[in-house]
Amino acid sequence: MAVLQLEDITQEFGGLRALDLVNLAVDEQQIFGIIGPNGAGKTTLFNIITGIYRPTGGKVIFKDHLLNNMSPWNVARIGIGRTFQNIRLFNKLSVLDNVRVGSHGVGKSGFWGCILGLPGERREEKAIIEQTEKLLELVGLYDKRWEYADNLAYGEQRRLEIARAMALKPSLLLLDEPAAGMNSTEKTELMDLIWKIRNDMHLTILLVEHDMNLVMNICEEIAVLDYGRKIADGSPEEIKNDERVIQSYLGAEA
């Protein structure tokens, strides 16, 4: 069953049609890849799903929610976590605090609880610390937990973004070019990490990535965007052998 469904999504910026009648159906616990040349509209698609843009036309449906007019923080609270292509960390907060902020959307403590340290708040804080430490171990940043986020290396920052998104306990995780700027060892580790997250935590992953090796290895289904249009959709094998895809995208890479 599709957990995320995009129906005839269109996005216009002034005269530019960044997305043109795009349809997608992402199944539960699938790793779904979106590929395409620069400027194809991949990030725009993520921004529409997460409420940053309101689509000009079409529908975004997640479980039984219509996301079209939902604000980003609301989208996060119903279980959609994301990372950013141009890394957006809380630079002057520690690695630990970055992940702790990530759990905001599933937290409950209010003003009086926070200011007076009421029992419920303390219990929640303890649970958050435990979860945060687990996530930092998972992404291999536990030893760096006291560092400021902007002191981390590029690849570490990307993994921190994943840990922060996971703190939301999302059922759908959107990763926007998580391997960008990583070396090949890091990429292999990232691949393992994505697998592990999906298998252990049973979530659905939507992945935008330019690294074809990673995409073909890890994704169960792939959609190809070109100039805002979806030109193909299928298994990695089908995509590799699709004439239009080879012409417009893969050919250029080879």
């Binding site: 997460t50 940053i52 604000s71 980003p72 923080w73 996060a76 609270r77 976590g81 994301r82 950013f84 957006r88 960390l89 809380f90 630079n91 002057k92 907060l93 605090d97 702790r100 902020v101 990530g102 759990s103 905001h104 959307g105 599933v106 922060r164 998104a165 703190a167 939301l168």
Partner: peptide, 18 residues
């Protein structure tokens, strides 16, 4: 922490449910 997060990066803060 949410207050600091807003100062540091508003878009990322919203993506965290703030």
């Amino acid at each position: 922490r949410a207050f600091y997060a807003i100062r540091e990066n508003e878009i990322a803060a919203e993506a965290s449910g703030i």
